[in-house]
């Protein structure tokens, strides 16, 4: 218990990094996932092919490899620099890799949501003169999102826990690495371990409850 109190500030600072990574990657992956699914259902064969290939490649690559590519490929080899400050740069490289990865799951969840929208509504949307992207934005996607709030919640929870593998991108500020680093000094401390696990649960459990509540509240009656 003493260990937990002693190292609490370091762990809290690390956990705050997990929270920040989650928030930024959450927003980015929702946007990118929406773009991906729009490509996959678009009438343009090239867009469909690009979307499908992207999802199949990235979704089936281990996250640690995606993050390693983000750091080694994008940053070191291709010379992508987002910030001159190394820790900020590292943060954004993780965000990039994590968002690129999570977006594929967001896109797949949304795609199953699109399948819940009756085809007739898409036809009706086209019949009043809406363009493809207007029907997608105004009719299809709003209903698709509402249908998959719960699975999207699961994707977000998985994404939050995935922030703990940031070390694969060489980014060492988040709490799981801080914990491991601490254990190297103190030996394994059960209180620290449980404390951190509880911190993650305090973050992720409400998401499960919130998405469940939203899903019931926003369900589309047919």
């Amino acid at each position: 218990m003493d260990d937990l109190i002693k190292y609490a500030p370091d762990l809290a600072a690390g956990f705050l990094v997990n929270v920040k990574l989650s928030l930024v990657s959450g927003v980015l992956s929702l946007i990118l996932g929406t773009i991906l699914v729009s490509m996959r259902v678009s009438p343009t064969p090239v867009l469909r092919a690009v979307g499908t290939t992207y999802v199949n490649v990235v979704r089936n690559t281990p996250l640690t490899l995606v993050l390693a590519f983000s750091a080694l490929g994008l940053s070191d080899t291709l010379g992508l620099t987002i910030s001159d400050e190394p820790s900020t740069n590292g943060f954004w490289l993780v965000v990039l890799g994590l968002s690129a990865y999570t977006a594929t799951f967001v896109g797949e969840a949304l795609r199953s949501g699109i399948n819940t929208v009756p085809l007739g509504q898409a036809e009706a949307a086209r019949a009043i003169g809406l363009t493809f992207f207007q029907s997608l934005r105004l009719i299809i996607l709003p209903q698709a999102f509402r249908a998959v709030i719960r699975p999207l919640g699961s994707v977000m929870i998985a994404m939050i826990k995935n922030t703990t593998v940031s070390v694969a991108a060489g980014y060492l500020a988040e709490s799981a690495f801080v914990m491991k680093d601490t254990f190297d000094d103190t030996g394994v401390s059960i209180p620290i371990f449980i404390g951190l696990a509880l911190a993650f649960m305090a973050f992720t459990l409400p998401i499960g409850f919130l998405t469940g509540w939203l899903a019931r509240r926003l369900a589309v009656a047919r």
């Binding site: 009438p43 009756p118 007739g120 509504q121 036809e123 009706a124 949307a125 086209r126 019949a127 009043i128 003169g129 809406l130 363009t131 009719i139 709003p142 209903q143 509402r146 589309v220 009656a221 047919r222």
Partner: peptide, 25 residues
């Protein structure tokens, strides 16, 4: 055949379906 001009044509031709197809949301 497609695009904006097709959308414009459709906006000038109303359509009523067997299964109504109102926007549920």
């Amino acid at each position: 055949a497609e695009g904006k001009s097709l959308a414009k044509l459709r906006s000038e031709v109303g359509m009523v379906f067997q299964s109504f197809n109102l926007f549920s949301h």
